[in-house]
Computed example of a mutant assay.
Amino acid sequence: MVDIRDATTSDIPEITKIYNDAVLNTTAIWNESVVDEANRLAWLNDRTRAGYPALVAIDDSGEVIGYASFGDWRAWEGYRYSIEHSVYIRNDYHRKGVGASIMRALIHRARNCGKHVMIAAIEAENIASIRMHEKLGFEKAGHLKQVGVKFGRWLDLTFLQLVLDSDSPVSR
């Protein structure tokens, strides 16, 4: 069983570990340098100030096993209803439904924030993440070739999007 709740400052050590594992061992994050807890605390504070959620997935023993959040897609006003999200799950919990569980909660929060489109930017060879997003209703929206580099190779980026509502911008 997995519980989903808002992240708190006490979750920062585990969030940092999950983030740094992804930096060191995956192409899910295209950064090559690990971060410290102060970095992740600043990230959490930035999300909170913006009114955006940072959620954690908790296992039966109370341990943080994943986290997810979203932020602005782009800085300009015309994009104010579009967001890009991130979701990271502890390695030993991959493919156990944790990602989908936390994503459902994040999608719900995005709708409650009045957002219209949620965007996923996923390394093109991360088929498991792409499939999970598709099962949640995301549709492929684009593919950029060789726009990143990590582990000495070029990386492609696949974009997926989920339309969260059918409201016209005039009704907002």
Rank of each mutant, 00 (worst) to 15 (best):
D59F: 01
D60I: 13
D60L: 14
D60T: 15
D60N: 14
G62N: 04
E63K: 15
E63I: 00
E63A: 14
E63V: 03
V64A: 05
I65R: 02
I65K: 05
I65L: 13
G66L: 04
Y67S: 04
Y67E: 07
S69V: 10
S69Q: 10
F70G: 04
F70D: 05
F70S: 09
G71I: 08
G71T: 10
G71N: 11
D72F: 06
D72L: 12
R74T: 03
R74D: 08
A75T: 11
A75S: 15
W76F: 09
E77F: 11
G78W: 07
Y79G: 10
Y79R: 06
R80A: 14
R80D: 13
R80I: 11
R80V: 06
Y81P: 03
Y81T: 12
S82L: 10
I83E: 14
I83K: 05
I83Y: 01
E84C: 11
H85R: 04
H85D: 09
S86R: 09
S86K: 11
S86C: 10
V87S: 03
V87K: 01
Y88S: 01
Y88T: 00
I89C: 07
R90S: 13
N91G: 03
N91M: 07
N91H: 14
D92I: 06
D92F: 08
Y93K: 09
Y93P: 03
H94E: 07
R95N: 11
K96C: 02
K96R: 15
G97F: 10
G97K: 07
V98H: 01
V98M: 05
V98E: 00
G99L: 02
A100N: 04
A100I: 07
S101R: 12
S101F: 00
I102S: 00
I102T: 01
I102V: 12
I102E: 00
I102N: 00
M103G: 00
A105Y: 02
L106Q: 01
L106M: 13
I107E: 07
H108Q: 09
A110H: 02
A110C: 08
R111C: 10
R111P: 02
N112A: 15
N112W: 05
N112S: 14
G114T: 12
G114E: 14
K115G: 01
H116S: 08
V117T: 13
V117G: 04
M118P: 09
A121L: 09
I122S: 02
E123I: 05
